[in-house]
């Protein structure tokens, strides 16, 4: 499904005349329907890997081969902006640690919009969005409320709802359980387990990978730069 081949990424900050290498020689792969966890210390480059797969960062070297539904196997680093935007709308989801939204967009609108972007008709999008909000226990009283007023856990669940409602083929999760209480973590775990059961391929960064025990089938250790079967 996805094969990351020997990518490296450094950042040059012209103003400070500095170049920092974030990752070097990272290779990993995940099969269709698999769940790969990435572990490592802060600053070891975990997020850099996810952002490279999502196309936010352009690695300096290497290749990221993705088996897309629409175009067959493509190298994420080579495809046009247009195709990458399309892949993000229809196939590849990304859950960041923070929720960034348009001001004064309600949570229901937010989730509905991501379906409309995919081309779902308005009514179906609205129904699906409501189901997703229900599924992630966002109380109905919050549906017509602005996400900026939500608690951290609610924001995160909303963020996951927004990404998963599209049923992406590949979902990238950047520490989806950080800063959550135990109950909320359980909900995220349950959500991931359902996605996995539905055939979504997942790559996630987790501080507490133990929590994903039984779900995660491979782990990539930043320290050893190696992938192992759990």
């Amino acid at each position: 499904m996805l094969s990351v081949q020997n990518i490296s990424k450094s950042f040059t900050i012209h103003h400070l005349k500095q170049t920092r290498t974030a990752i070097g020689g990272v290779s990993l792969h995940v099969d269709k329907g698999g769940f790969l966890g990435i572990v490592g210390k802060s600053g070891s480059g975990k997020s850099t890997i996810l952002k490279s797969i999502y196309g936010t960062y352009k690695p300096d070297a290497g290749a990221i081969m993705y088996d897309s539904q629409e175009h067959g196997t493509v190298n994420i680093l080579d495809i046009s902006d247009y195709d990458l935007i399309r892949l993000r709308r229809t196939e590849i989801g990304y859950v960041s640690q923070f929720l960034k939204v348009m001001p004064r967009t309600t949570s229901l609108e937010l989730v509905t919009q991501s379906l409309l972007e995919m081309g779902e008709p308005q009514e179906i999008a609205l129904d699906k969005a409501k189901d997703a909000l229900r599924h992630y226990d966002i109380p109905e009283s919050l549906w017509n409320n602005y996400p900026n007023t939500f608690s951290g856990g609610e924001k995160l669940r909303l963020n996951i709802a927004r990404a998963t409602v599209k049923a992406p083929r590949l979902l990238l999760l950047d520490e989806p359980t950080a800063s959550l209480d135990y109950d909320s973590k359980l909900k995220v775990r349950e959500a991931i387990s359902k996605l996995k059961a539905n055939g979504t391929t997942l790559i996630g960064i987790f501080h507490d990978l133990d929590f994903m025990e039984g779900l995660c089938d491979h782990v990539y250790d930043m320290n050893e730069k190696a992938q192992q079967v759990i």
């Binding site: 950042f11 040059t12 012209h14 103003h15 952002k51 196309g55 936010t56 960062y57 352009k58 902006d81 990458l84 935007i85």
Partner: peptide, 13 residues
């Protein structure tokens, strides 16, 4: 480029 590329990984000084 794509907006998040420009904002998160700006290359030009």
């Amino acid at each position: 480029g794509i907006t998040d590329q420009i904002l998160e990984d700006p290359k030009h000084h």
